[in-house]
Design a protein around this nucleic acid. Structure first.
Lengths: 320, 320
DNA sequence: ATGAAAGCGCTAACAT
DNA sequence: ATGTTAGCGCTTTCAT
């Protein structure tokens, strides 16, 4: 910057002001300096600026799970949420620092002004660990798993109710839930499902603690069928992929879907509509979720108040 | 740090050394300072350190496409590559700054020591734009699209050959390729396919310029079938999702897969093995690709030499 | 409309 | 084994 100042025949501070588009500097000088900077490939040292301004202009997005080939299919939400987060943060001139939960330690927290947590973890483990960092935090998930921190998430309980209503309308009386209820979001859906089923005179006959993949969905139902202890005529799965696995297990066993057993998924992933039978599912708006996460975190960072927000979900009726 | 120095009764520099685990400071003093720091919640100001050290300890990962709900399914590679990248960079104490290509401008390049580009863009647009930034760059894609910059990618031409060999072994003579060859990777696959087909006495009858989704795959084949201008008995698709779409269009039209038309996909996404018929496809090792990308960029950043690397691919034979 | 001085928190170089 | 000095590149405050 000093070099540029010498070149332009002005002082450093005028360069600084000009590049930030300050009104204080003469428009002509400003343009001259800007083009000079471009021409010489000058780039602002953001470490210096951040040191001076006592901020980082950066937000960490912490992904609870280890990214892998298997996960993006089973849980597309990280990238979808990131789209919304990125859009909002970029327009506020903040950058996104991406890291996996297990890489995070309080000592070497990277230089960020706040943290967005994607996934609160089994038994809220992630939420609890993040809170110790002493920076503003907003997490994606369930209110019950927020432990006092700000939460943005879908109305999972309502999702469960919608699934129950759909199954009830098809005359189903005995429903199986597939999902690990140690995750707050998953538990909320189960609660909503159970309450609405019982209000409609039906029963939640089983709540199976499985994983999030096609295979775990298929295996859960295979086990259930071979045990033969329960009769069931409906399934609500914690994700579309799990629902697809469940359907595969059913059709492999000669059980008709939706004739014998109706299935409702969650997420409305692109594949849901292409699967045979096309999946009835609950849709959540990840992109908007991302926007909200970013907006609320920025509020906190700037010392303003912000509140948790739960977004509506929709039932998408197809053929399962 | 000055406060901590006062508390510990030593000078700032001793604090600095102790926290970095320097040998120069007495082990006892070192531990005392470390626990004092922990106790008082002291955190190093990384902007100051980076300013002083003239580095950023950060690498930008630039994703060529806008993340969305549709993309992670169609192209799972961003997250899979990120897994490998993250693993490698974290152990070198570098952070990952994530951004979308369209958010990148030379003026406001965030404070990074280098850039990893995921996806070189149609007609290598992304590669060309990134090169102007004047920082070390490594990109995921094809050598032909590197424009002099370092590239890590799968052996796409070999992938095309493997697909051709598979189709030839099934006695196929007239093959359709589904993919936008303005992307270097996609073009390489097409070239490998064509060469090997012709060497085996078969023909590439059509090369259809489509997108990367289930729907574009289905539409391409529907159009082809209704035009009726070409007879074909084999398809090689640029992704598993496109292959699935193509298969759907075929079976919807009463064409048997693989009896009438055999189909080979690309990527070996988790869904490939669950699709009916299970997809024959080419597998690439994204995680390892991510590791290599990160390693090579770090070499460049540290002023060492590094070379492009093309990774082997495998044919996974299933039922399509 | 422009400038001079001071200092953000850290560490390398050079003492002691 | 520890300390002193100086300066990384920027912007705020207070002149002019």
């Amino acid at each position: 910057m000093a070099d540029l100042a010498a070149l332009a025949g002005v002082s450093k501070i005028t360069i600084s002001r000009a590049l930030r588009g300050s009104e204080a500097v003469h428009p002509e000088t400003r343009e001259r300096i800007k083009s000079l900077a471009r021409e010489h490939g000058y780039r602002l040292n953001l470490s210096a600026r951040n040191l001076r301004l006592q901020r980082n202009a950066m937000v960490a997005v912490v992904v609870e799970m280890q990214p892998s080939v298997e996960r993006p299919m089973s849980e597309p939400y990280p990238l979808a949420l990131l789209g919304g987060i990125s859009q909002e943060l970029t327009s506020a001139e903040y950058s996104i620092l991406l890291m996996a939960m297990h890489e995070l330690s309080p000592e070497r927290l990277p230089p960020v002004d706040g943290v967005i947590l994607l996934g609160q973890g089994e038994a809220d483990e992630a939420t609890v660990r993040i809170r110790e960092l002493g920076v503003p935090v907003v997490s994606w998930g369930a209110l019950r798993s927020g432990h006092g921190s700000l939460v943005v998430g879908s109305d999972n309980a309502r999702g469960g109710e919608l699934a129950a209503e759909r199954l009830l309308s098809l005359g189903r009386r005995r429903v199986v839930y597939l999902g690990n209820t140690r995750f707050g979001e998953i538990a909320d859906r189960c609660d909503g499902l159970k309450a609405r089923l019982e209000a409609g005179g039906a029963t939640l006959v089983e709540c199976l603690d499985g994983g999030f993949t096609f295979l775990t969905g298929a295996n859960a139902i295979r086990t259930l069928l071979s045990a033969g202890t329960h009769h069931f005529d409906g399934i609500f799965a914690c994700s579309d992929l799990v629902a697809m696995g469940a359907i595969r297990a059913l059709t492999d066993a000669g059980v008709d879907v939706p004739g014998d057993v109706a299935v409702v998924g969650f997420d409305d992933t692109p594949m849901a509509s292409y699967f045979v039978p096309a999946l009835t599912t609950i849709r959540q708006d990840w992109h908007h979720g991302g926007l909200l996460l970013a907006r609320k975190l920025l509020s906190l960072v700037q010392g303003e108040a912000a509140q948790s927000e739960i977004m509506p979900v929709n039932l998408i009726v197809r053929s399962s």
